[in-house]
Amino acid sequence: MSSSSTTTTTTRLLMLKASDGVTFEVEEAVATKLGAINNMVEEEGSEDLICLPNVNGKFLGMVLEWCKKHANNNTNSDKGNDEVNKWWDKEFVMDLDQNTLYHLLMAADYLSGTELVDLLTEKVASMIRGKKVEEIRETFKIKSDFLPGQEEEIRKKNSWAFE
């Protein structure tokens, strides 16, 4: 918070290097939407190249795409920005397959992109919502590993939730 680097230089460019060597050149204002990057910039104000060995290029690209959209929308002071962001977020998560969704979620979490983590966890929760246990297992390809009788016991105790 004491550093002035984030407030004075709005057009500064950062290089973000993914685990597979793919690099992205992004404006500081965009990259600092991510808490992890923001911390690094504040701590290490002089470094322009940031290596992110835990995220591959595909997912880092997607995370940055989201950051860019939100950073741009937030600079306009239009009233409808929240609506625009919401609409765009909906589009962003709509057609993601599960594998991409999970990896994107982990990338967002690793980079401390709190709002993006919110969006993606909401999306996964919406895939659970209103489903029966069997349907949840099918959706997430999970096999029950309960001992015989264990599951019945849980259901019996909480029968109101299984109506």
Binding site: G130, K132, V133, S144, F162
Partner: peptide
């Protein structure tokens, strides 16, 4: 919903 999740695995 949360209770149902508790009986998934």
């Amino acid at each position: 919903s949360a209770v149902r999740c508790s009986s998934v695995c």
